[in-house]
Design a protein around this nucleic acid. Structure first.
Length: 262
DNA sequence: ATGGTCGGTCCCCGA
């Protein structure tokens, strides 16, 4: 079995104690991190490697930044940056191929743009980025292999995934245009792991730091594992690690962890 | 209608 997790850590250096504890407790095989907010020069490679992980990152100063950690060696880092726009300098996509006991699998760490305020240039960038992701995923699906597109999608798929849907109708994460494009993306032949494995209302992955959102369970579900048919056929468990939202200096996101018979 | 909270960096921006 291979466990694959996604976690937006909101700064790797500030979060190192929480990340170290969770890696030790949960011991996932593969971890996709987002918002590391770090360049390669400042990334804590040694501390994470000491826990038994190979580490590959696409970083930038101050904002964004993604990483993949893997207990198994990487066969290949197949992409650094999302193809489709050479002028895009934001570090939001890294992709690797890793071998399981039964089959190789491809995994991507994705930090999809937030898009607020909408409408506006940031929302236009979000929609264009989703178009590029869809085009790239269509190419990957032709390989007919196990593929896990893991990350912070900044998309609330349905009303049941947000504590107060009516308050989010003008937010870039929940606007009808956003949800429609996300469904279009799934429609190319992908499966959202949570929808397949659980699907219950009120299962959130993010709670804002403000207004006591965590204490009042005012959350949203925006961190997703998106699967090719070969991955969807082999997922055996999916869990949201809510426990990490407690404690000292938590991230505002929690890990989503899938178990696969790879 | 407003203010509320984080993180990174440089005196404000993004979420």
């Amino acid at each position: 079995m291979i466990t694959i997790a996604t976690w937006n850590v909101n700064s790797i250096r500030t979060r190192m104690h929480a990340v170290t504890k969770w890696l030790t407790d949960a011991s996932p095989d593969v971890v996709c991190l987002q918002e590391i907010k770090s360049t390669s020069e400042n990334f804590p490679f040694m501390e994470i490697e000491a826990l038994g992980y190979n580490v590959e990152i696409l970083g930038q100063k101050s904002y964004n930044g993604v990483a993949i950690l893997s207990k198994r060696p990487f066969d290949e880092i197949s992409e650094r940056g999302l193809p489709g726009d050479d002028s895009d300098e934001q570090a939001r996509y890294i992709e690797a191929v890793i071998s399981g006991d039964k089959r190789p699998f491809r995994v991507a760490s994705i930090y999809l743009p937030n898009g607020n305020p909408a409408p506006g240039p940031k929302y236009d960038y979000k929609l264009a980025w989703m178009d590029r992701l869809m085009a790239h995923a269509q190419g990957l699906l032709k390989h007919e292999e196990a593929l896990v597109l893991a990350g912070d999608y900044n998309v609330i798929p349905e009303a049941k995934d947000v504590y107060a849907p009516s308050e989010w109708l003008t937010e870039a994460l929940y606007m009808p245009t956003t949800r429609k494009k996300f469904q279009e993306f799934l429609g190319i032949g992908l499966t959202e792991a949570f929808a397949q494995m659980d699907g219950r209302a009120g299962q959130y992955t993010f709670w804002d730091y403000q207004r006591g959102a965590w204490q009042n369970n005012e959350g949203i579900r925006i961190d997703h594992l998106i699967l090719s048919p070969q991955a969807a056929d082999n997922i055996v468990d999916l869990k949201i690690h809510k426990m990490t939202r407690d404690g000292i200096k938590p991230s505002d996101h929690v890990p989503v962890v899938g178990t696969f018979d790879f």
